[in-house]
């Protein structure tokens, strides 16, 4: 132990831990967007299905997963708070009302499907069904708005690039929801979803391109980052993944379509991180080096993350393999 601790400290000290944590915070955000993204997408697609049995299937498909998925947002908040406390403080208080709007949307999205299942009378299910849709569309829109405001250094809440990015994120969650539901449903529902997926991925690419245009026009500060080779490569990858998604959808390659969704999500968040770098909060001008916690705290966090995150992935493997394949709407408790 006496040998081990200095060795560990030396190894950690040699690593660029602040930059690694900058990357990790965005990686956690992306994982949240991918996993809770399909919960949001399922909620949005809920609006397009009128049949009771199909609606039950949609809700049942995310039942065992959504709580675990949403914890990635809690971990995102925790990681940002722990690694960049001054950014957490400045960012969340700057977008005060937006943060509570996000929380409201998440509360609605979380509770509505649980309540929908409680009773089977028409009025009750109509209202909680609507609440489910509203929460599922509002949450990714507001999270997109928040993220755009954050990396672009906006001090106001309602900004043009933020709104366009928010819409793009909504489209992306529908892409995600379709990919997930194609794995979890059968029959007509699954066949119909192909068209929704095709439309959603076209909408996403369109809105993503529009976002880049709007950002270029309105935010001169990030123009160099926007035209950097890395950003252009990520944009090219996004187009590639979108084509891959569309092809996989046509050929019923469900896992491939979901993998392509993963590419789209991580690609988008990587682009977001690239726009922010080297700042971790552009509005206050805090760089990664200025915003990071002291080395001792960061080392403890790093050891914690190194041990715990692989375990967390293990939990998700157990969860997703226990419930692989299409849902049986009858199943509960």
């Amino acid at each position: 132990m006496t040998e081990f601790r200095p060795l560990l400290a030396d190894t950690l000290a040699a690593l660029p831990l602040p930059e690694i944590w900058f990357g990790l915070v965005f990686f956690i955000l992306a994982t949240f967007l991918l996993l809770d993204g399909f919960d949001f997408g399922v909620g949005a697609l809920f609006a397009t299905r009128a049949d009771d049995g199909e609606r039950e299937q949609l809700i049942a498909s995310i039942g065992p997963f959504w709580d675990g998925n949403e914890v990635w947002l809690v971990v995102f908040g925790g990681a940002l708070f722990a690694a960049f406390p001054r950014v957490y403080a400045a960012l969340f208080s700057r977008h005060y009302l937006l943060m509570f709007a996000i929380l409201g949307a998440l509360i609605l999205r979380g509770l509505a499907p649980e309540l929908y299942e409680q009773r089977h009378d028409e009025a009750w299910q109509r209202w909680w069904g609507r609440a489910f849709v509203v929460g599922s569309v509002a949450a990714p829109f507001l999270l997109g708005l928040f993220t755009a405001n954050w990396v672009l250094g906006a001090t106001r809440t309602l900004t043009l690039p933020g709104v366009v990015v928010g819409l793009a994120v909504v489209a992306l969650t529908v892409v995600d929801g379709v990919a997930f539901l194609r794995l979890k449903t059968r029959g007509d529902l699954r066949a119909d979803l192909r068209r929704s997926g095709r439309r959603a991925v076209i909408a996403y690419v369109g809105l993503a391109v529009a976002s880049l245009g709007v950002i270029y026009a309105t935010t001169p500060a990030v123009r160099p980052e926007l035209t950097s080779p890395l950003a252009l490569a990520l944009v090219a990858l996004t187009v590639l993944f979108a084509v891959g998604y569309a092809v996989a959808l046509e050929r019923d390659r469900h896992y491939l379509a979901f993998a392509a969704t993963g590419g789209l999500v991580y690609g988008l968040v990587a682009l977001v991180a690239a726009l922010s770098f080297p700042y971790v909060d552009r509005a206050t001008g805090l760089t990664i080096q200025e915003g990071i916690v002291s080395p001792l705290s960061l080392q403890i966090l790093s050891v914690g993350a190194l041990v715990l995150l692989p375990l967390v992935f293990g939990y998700f493997v157990v969860l997703y393999s226990a419930f692989s394949g299409p849902v049986d709407p009858e199943e509960s408790y």
């Binding site: 039942g63 065992p64 997963f65 709580d67 675990g68 949403e70 914890v71 809690v74 971990v75 908040g77 925790g78 990681a79 708070f81 722990a82 690694a83 406390p85 001054r86 957490y88 403080a89 916690v293 002291s294 705290s297 403890i300 966090l301 914690g304 993350a305 715990l308 995150l309 375990l311 967390v312 939990y315 998700f316 157990v318 969860l319 226990a322 419930f323």
Partner: peptide, 25 residues
């Protein structure tokens, strides 16, 4: 934040993830 954020981050990774995933099962 340095003392307060750390435990919250560790809580998320160590505890909340464990309960939320196995809750599904």
């Amino acid at each position: 934040g340095e003392l307060f954020g750390g435990p919250l981050a560790l809580e998320g990774m160590m505890a909340f993830m464990l309960e939320a995933t196995f809750l599904g099962v």
